[in-house]
Amino acid sequence: QVATSTVRILGMTCQSCVKSIEDRISNLKGIISMKVSLEQGSATVKYVPSVVCLQQVCHQIGDMGFEASIAE
Rank of each mutant, 00 (worst) to 15 (best):
Q1C: 15
Q1A: 06
Q1G: 09
Q1D: 15
Q1S: 07
V2W: 15
V2P: 06
V2A: 07
A3C: 15
A3D: 06
A3N: 10
A3G: 04
T4W: 13
T4G: 03
S5I: 08
S5F: 07
S5A: 14
S5H: 12
S5Y: 06
T6F: 15
T6R: 14
T6I: 13
V7P: 00
V7N: 00
V7L: 15
V7Y: 01
V7M: 14
R8Q: 08
I9E: 00
I9T: 00
I9Q: 00
I9K: 00
L10C: 07
L10I: 09
L10D: 07
G11F: 06
G11P: 01
G11H: 04
G11Q: 03
G11E: 01
G11C: 06
M12G: 00
M12Q: 01
M12A: 00
M12D: 00
M12N: 00
M12Y: 03
T13P: 00
T13Q: 07
T13W: 15
T13G: 03
T13V: 12
T13E: 08
T13N: 05
T13Y: 15
C14D: 06
C14F: 04
C14R: 02
C14P: 01
Q15Y: 14
Q15L: 13
Q15W: 10
Q15H: 13
S16W: 06
S16R: 14
S16N: 11
S16Q: 12
S16F: 08
S16E: 12
C17H: 15
C17F: 05
C17P: 03
C17N: 06
C17K: 03
C17D: 15
V18K: 08
V18I: 05
V18R: 05
V18C: 04
V18T: 06
V18D: 00
V18Y: 04
K19W: 11
K19A: 08
K19F: 09
K19Q: 10
S20T: 12
S20R: 15
S20K: 15
S20G: 05
I21L: 05
I21E: 01
I21G: 02
E22Y: 08
E22K: 05
D23G: 09
D23T: 11
D23K: 11
D23Y: 11
D23F: 11
D23A: 13
D23N: 13
D23H: 13
R24F: 07
R24I: 07
R24T: 09
I25E: 00
I25H: 01
I25C: 05
I25N: 01
I25D: 00
S26E: 06
S26I: 10
S26K: 10
S26D: 02
N27T: 12
N27S: 13
N27Q: 14
N27W: 07
N27I: 12
N27V: 12
L28T: 06
L28M: 13
L28Y: 05
L28I: 11
K29M: 11
K29T: 10
K29D: 12
K29Q: 10
K29G: 08
G30T: 05
G30D: 01
G30F: 08
G30K: 04
G30A: 04
I31K: 00
I31P: 00
I31W: 04
I31A: 00
I32Y: 05
I32V: 10
I32P: 00
I32C: 05
I32G: 00
I32N: 00
I32F: 05
S33A: 09
S33W: 11
S33V: 05
S33H: 09
S33F: 09
M34T: 04
M34E: 00
M34H: 00
M34D: 00
K35D: 06
K35N: 07
K35H: 10
K35M: 07
V36S: 00
V36L: 04
V36K: 00
S37R: 09
S37G: 03
S37C: 09
S37K: 05
S37D: 10
S37Y: 11
S37W: 08
S37P: 00
L38Q: 03
L38I: 06
L38W: 06
L38C: 06
E39W: 09
E39K: 08
E39N: 08
Q40V: 07
Q40K: 14
Q40N: 13
Q40A: 12
Q40D: 10
Q40W: 13
Q40F: 13
Q40E: 11
G41V: 04
G41K: 12
G41L: 08
G41P: 01
S42T: 13
S42A: 10
S42E: 12
S42K: 12
A43K: 01
A43M: 08
A43G: 13
A43Y: 04
A43V: 05
A43R: 03
A43H: 02
T44Q: 12
T44V: 13
T44D: 06
T44N: 07
T44M: 12
T44F: 12
T44H: 08
V45W: 04
V45C: 05
V45A: 02
K46M: 15
K46P: 04
K46H: 11
K46Q: 15
Y47A: 01
Y47C: 04
Y47G: 01
Y47F: 08
V48M: 15
V48H: 15
V48P: 00
V48K: 09
V48L: 12
V48C: 10
P49T: 08
P49K: 06
P49G: 04
P49L: 07
P49H: 07
P49R: 08
P49M: 06
P49Y: 07
P49W: 08
S50Q: 07
S50L: 08
S50P: 03
V51E: 13
V51A: 06
V51D: 07
V51I: 13
V51M: 14
V52I: 14
V52S: 01
V52E: 00
V52Y: 03
V52L: 10
V52D: 01
C53S: 14
C53G: 10
C53V: 08
C53N: 12
C53A: 09
C53P: 08
C53K: 12
C53I: 08
C53T: 15
L54Q: 00
L54C: 04
L54F: 04
L54V: 06
Q55T: 09
Q55C: 14
Q55D: 09
Q55I: 12
Q56C: 09
Q56Y: 15
Q56S: 09
Q56G: 04
V57A: 01
V57P: 01
V57L: 06
V57M: 03
C58Q: 10
C58R: 10
C58V: 14
C58L: 15
C58I: 15
H59F: 14
H59W: 15
H59M: 14
H59Q: 15
H59C: 07
H59E: 14
Q60N: 09
Q60T: 14
Q60E: 15
Q60R: 08
I61G: 03
I61K: 05
I61T: 03
I61V: 04
I61P: 01
I61H: 03
I61Q: 03
I61D: 02
G62F: 12
G62K: 15
D63I: 13
D63P: 03
D63W: 10
D63N: 12
D63C: 07
M64L: 13
M64I: 07
M64D: 02
M64N: 02
G65N: 03
G65M: 04
G65Y: 05
F66D: 02
F66W: 04
F66Y: 12
F66V: 02
F66N: 01
F66P: 01
F66I: 02
E67K: 14
E67N: 11
E67C: 06
E67V: 13
E67R: 14
A68Q: 03
A68D: 03
A68T: 09
A68V: 12
A68S: 05
A68L: 05
S69Y: 14
S69F: 14
S69P: 03
S69R: 12
S69G: 06
I70Q: 05
I70Y: 14
I70G: 04
I70F: 09
A71V: 13
A71S: 11
E72V: 11
E72Q: 10
E72H: 14
E72A: 10
